[in-house]
Structure formats: C-alpha cells, structure tokens
C-alpha cells in the first residue's frame, strides 16, 4: 500500500487488525474510529479460513454497543466473534516497545491473548469492573462515606480476577520468550542472547514469582493488605495487573537501558516473529501480517531476514510512503497498490 501521509494506509491496516480482536488497536473508545459527524463505522470483510470463504462484518457506533455479523448472522456475544481472524500488527509505535511505557508492553501482550484465548475477553471485563468498583470505594472512604473495612469484600474478588489476568500474560511471556530468543539468534547471526521475563504488578513481584496456583492469589491479597495505606493516600489501587510489565534483557543486561536503537529494533522484530509462530501454532493457520510503515525503519539486512522468516503462504500487508524504502526482494513479490484519499487502486507503477 503505497501513498503519502494521511491518505488512509494505516486506516486500512487498522481495519484488518480490528477484525482480529473486535477492538480497534489505536482507539481508546469506539467513537474514536467513527468519522467526525457520522453515526457509525462499518468494516466489511471477505476472508478465507481453512479453505472456506467467510464474511465478517463489524459495526462501531458513536453511541451504543458494537455489532458483529459472521456470514450475515449477528453474534450474540463477542466471544462468538473472536478467533475468526488472527493478525500480527507491527507498527511504528512498536519500535518503542522496549524503552517505551509499561502500558504499551501490556497492550502488546493483551492483543495476542485476545486472539488465542476467547475467555480473556470476559476475564478482562471482570477485572476492570472490579478495579473501577474498588477505586470508587477508595474514594468513598476518603470522603468518609464508607469505612476502610468495606474494602475486604472487594479485595478477594479483586485478587482472584487480577490473578486470572496476570496468569494469562505470564503464560504468554513464557511461551513467547524462547521463540523470540531463537529469532534474535537468527537475526543477529548468533551474536546476541535475548532474555524475556514477566514482572507481575505487585510490590516485590519479580520474574521468579510463582504465578500458578492459589498461592499467587494469596500473594496479591497480601500485597493489597500491605498497600492499603498507599492506595488510600493516592485514591486508587496501586497493586494489580494494571502495574504488570515485562523486561527484555540483552546478554544479561536490561535492553531498555543498554541496547542500541538497532538492537532494540531487532528485539521487537524477534518478538513479532515469535508472535507469528505462536498464533500459527495456536490456531493452526498463519496469521495475517500487518507491517505499518515499519519496513522503512529496518535496514536491508533486517528486511531480508524478515522476508525470509515470513516465507510463503503468509498474507502480508505492507504500507510505505516510498517504494524505494523496500528491499528489492520485497518489491519483486508484492502486489503494489496506490492509496489516494479514501480509495485504493491496483495494480500500479512498479
């Protein structure tokens, strides 16, 4: 997809990525994906899954719930939608993953989990509802409208829901890590050793922490008890999955602080390839690969390594402003479309 800035290239990739999780990857609210002045935004797609055609349509509204249809049949629950399309989205924002905010690193994990575990949708919803309720109670305690002892009724369900979310993320990092480590070895010609570990969002929580089993719920509960004074001082929960994080280490040292820009890009690329492998193993079909404006940021050797890693049979969408940013081997294998405001034309100049 070739075109200048602000022509709608990312918009197209965003639409494809949205098909996977039913959640727009860059929007915080559904209303943000709707054109200004319009009431709703609709994505219509025709796909082939396991050799069978499938039609999947999603509708986002400025007001009201989103609606989804598979082959014209409305989905009663979002769980019925999930798992139909899997994607790996690699955008420019991902290049900052390693030294960026913990929030970005959590979102990256959650996007993968939503595609692999349909139940995560409910677990997340439950957890965020508990967070909102418990924070509301903390505010009532601060104004004197409630007593601190009332927190006890919320701490245990909070801990159970928090553990469910953190467990999913920890399990994902555990299966992502060895694959990413292998890919970095390939990308760096065996020179660099990557290590990735999960840090649960409780004080003192580190990578060695056991997250399986009831003892983790007990640790979260204990941490909640200990952080109560701090929670009350700040007016919100300071312990929980909203504080989870993961760390990348290069040759044993924190990559956020020590790795060069090029090395960090290689780590992100290794992670994306690991994500692709994992989704393929989980779903039995390779996911769609969406490369939004990132190819230009990778040097020719990394571009080549990526192309080789993708191999055949993986549908890949690439956006770029200049054809010259693409390594020759990429250009040779691509269908090139021109993106002008609001429409896409193919074939085009080569």
């Amino acid at each position: 997809m070739l075109g200048g800035n602000a022509q709608g290239k990312t918009n197209l990739l965003e639409a494809v990525a949205t098909l996977a999780t039913a959640q727009p990857p860059f929007a915080r609210k559904d209303a943000e994906v709707v054109r200004f002045g319009a009431k709703d935004a609709i994505i219509r797609s025709s796909l082939r899954r396991g050799g069978y055609p499938l039609r999947a349509d999603l509708c986002f509204r400025t007001q009201g719930r989103r609606a989804a249809q598979i082959d014209g049949v409305p989905c009663r629950r979002m769980v019925d939608w999930l798992g139909k399309v899997t994607v790996v989205l690699f955008s420019r924002a991902d290049l900052d993953l390693i030294q960026g905010s913990p929030q970005g690193r959590r979102q990256m994990l959650d996007r993968i989990i939503r595609q692999m575990a349909p139940l995560f949708h409910d677990e997340e919803a439950r957890w965020s509802r508990l967070l909102v309720q418990r924070n509301a109670l903390i505010r009532h305690i601060l104004t004197g409208a409630a007593t601190a002892s009332q927190l006890e009724a919320w701490d245990e369900p909070f801990a159970v829901a928090a553990a469910a979310v953190s467990r999913r993320r920890a399990a994902l990092v555990r299966s992502l890590a060895p694959r990413a480590e292998r890919w970095l070895e390939v990308l760096s010609g065996g020179c660099e050793a990557l290590g990735i570990g999960y840090k649960p969002g409780i004080p003192g929580g580190d990578e060695s922490m056991s997250i399986e089993g009831p003892e983790f719920v007990a640790s979260v509960l204990e941490a909640l008890g200990k952080s109560r004074a701090q929670d009350l001082a700040r007016g919100h929960a300071t312990v929980g999955p909203h504080r989870d994080d993961w760390l990348a280490r290069l040759d044993g040292r924190d990559a956020a602080g020590f790795a060069s820009t090029g090395q960090r890009r290689s780590i992100v690329l290794a992670l994306k390839l690991a994500e692709r492998d994992l989704l393929r193993e989980a779903v039995g079909e390779p996911p769609l690969l969406l490369l939004d404006d990132v190819l230009a940021e990778l040097d020719p050797s990394r571009q080549e390594a990526l192309l080789e890693a993708i191999g055949d049979g993986v549908q890949t969408f690439v956006t770029s402003t200049h054809l010259s940013d693409l390594h020759g081997a990429w250009r040779a294998r691509a269908d090139i479309c021109q993106v002008a405001p609001g429409h896409i034309a193919r074939p085009s100049v080569t």
Partner: peptide, 9 residues
C-alpha cells in the same frame, strides 16, 4: 454492594 452507585452495606 456497588460503590460506583454509592451502595455500601
């Protein structure tokens, strides 16, 4: 119980 709606014990 729903602190959001101001409902406590």
């Amino acid at each position: 119980l729903s602190p959001l709606d101001g409902i406590g014990p």
